[in-house]
C-alpha cells in the first residue's frame, strides 16, 4: 500500500508550523528560495476514501469535518464515474488574492498565499474568482484556504497527492 507514513504526519504538522514561522516577522528579510506546493499527481488513482479531507480538518481544525477541509474529493457522475480532486494549485498570479477586497488573502514575495482569517469578511469574492473551486467558505462563513502543509499527503493511501517544491 502507498506511502502512508503516519509518523511523518506529525512531522508534517511540525513542518506546517515551520512554514508558518517562516512567514512571521522574524523570518522576513530573508528570502526563501523555494515554496512547497501541493500537487495532484495521480488523480486517477483515487479510491474515494476521503482520508485527505479528514486529515485536513483533523490536523488543521482538530475536528472531523468535510465542510472545513481545504481539499475536496468530488465525484463526476456518482461513484460509478471518476473522482475529482479539488484543491488549490498555488497559482503564480492568484485570482483569489486579486478578488479579496479586505486584504485577508495576501501573496508573499515567494509566491505563497497567506490567509489572515481575522480580516476575512466572508464576502465570497474569492470563491467566485477561483475557476477550479479550490477556495470556499466554511461553516463559520470564512474562507478555507489550503496552506499546502501536506497533512493530506501523509494520509493518502494511493499516492494521489504529492508535495512539490517550486521556485519562489
Amino acid at each position: 500500500m502507498g506511502g502512508a507514513a503516519v509518523e511523518s504526519a506529525a512531522g508534517d504538522a511540525k513542518e506546517t508550523q515551520a512554514v508558518q514561522a517562516a512567514t512571521s516577522e522574524k523570518a522576513r528579510g530573508e528570502k526563501p528560495k523555494k515554496r512547497r506546493r501541493l500537487k495532484v499527481a495521480h488523480p486517477e488513482r483515487c479510491i474515494g476514501c476521503l482520508g485527505c479531507m479528514f486529515a485536513c480538518s483533523r490536523i488543521n481544525t482538530g475536528t472531523a469535518s468535510l465542510q472545513d477541509s481545504a481539499i475536496k474529493i468530488q465525484t463526476r457522475g456518482g461513484i460509478e464515474g471518476d473522482f475529482v480532486v479539488v484543491v488549490c494549485r498555488g497559482c503564480e498570479n492568484p485570482p483569489c488574492v486579486r478578488a479579496c477586497p479586505s486584504g485577508a488573502l495576501e501573496r508573499k514575495e515567494d509566491g505563497r498565499v497567506v490567509f489572515h482569517k481575522e480580516l476575512c469578511t466572508g464576502c465570497g469574492k474569492c470563491e467566485e474568482a477561483c475557476l477550479i473551486g479550490a477556495i470556499s467558505l466554511g461553516k463559520d462563513g470564512k474562507a478555507i484556504k489550503c496552506k499546502h502543509c501536506g497533512a493530506c499527503v501523509a494520509f493518502c493511501p494511493h499516492d494521489v497527492l504529492e508535495l512539490e517544491e517550486v521556485p519562489a
Binding site: M1, A4, I47, G48, C49, L50, G51, I79, P157, H158
Partner: peptide, 10 residues
C-alpha cells in the same frame, strides 16, 4: 478499487 468514506483500504 474503491473505498467507503473513511477507510484507506479500498
Amino acid at each position: 478499487r474503491l473505498s467507503c468514506a473513511g477507510c484507506p483500504i479500498g
